[in-house]
């Protein structure tokens, strides 16, 4: 299953995208429950409490299959960090994209055995 991570914000305001393929079993055991919990009541952006005074921090949009969540950097827990690091590592392992591919490496990486592409 394909997981795509888009990071926006930061002082540079540059959007970076990384992606990786994980097995359906891994996605269902680890990442989909995490994404659904993040998207659930009490965790969304609209329920953020007092405004965050932080400026220029990153926001991550993580898409696991058809489930998409937005996670501010300040709430990024260890499992997500591991996933992001794996996606970035997968990007580094691939050859650099050719000119014109503006948003960074987005092609699927051999990380785990893809059983099925969504």
């Amino acid at each position: 299953m394909r997981i795509e991570i888009t990071r926006s914000g930061g002082v540079g305001g540059m959007t970076r995208t990384w992606s990786l393929e994980v097995s359906r079993a891994e996605a269902e055991e680890r990442w989909l429950p995490l994404a659904e919990a993040e998207a659930g009541p009490g965790k969304g952006m609209q329920d953020a409490g007092p405004p965050d005074p932080a400026r220029d921090r990153f926001t991550y949009r993580i898409t696991v299959g058809y489930t998409e969540v937005s996670v501010p950097e300040s709430r990024l827990g260890e499992p997500w960090r591991e996933l992001i690091e794996r996606a970035r590592e997968a990007g580094r392992a691939r050859p650099a994209p050719g000119p014109g591919e503006g948003s960074g490496p987005t092609t699927a990486a051999g990380d785990g055995t893809p059983e099925e592409l969504l």
Binding site: G10, V11, G12, D52, P53, A54, R55, D56, R57, F58
Partner: peptide, 9 residues
């Protein structure tokens, strides 16, 4: 870490 930010303090 690829950033600089203001954390409110």
């Amino acid at each position: 870490y690829d950033n600089a930010f203001w954390d409110g303090e």
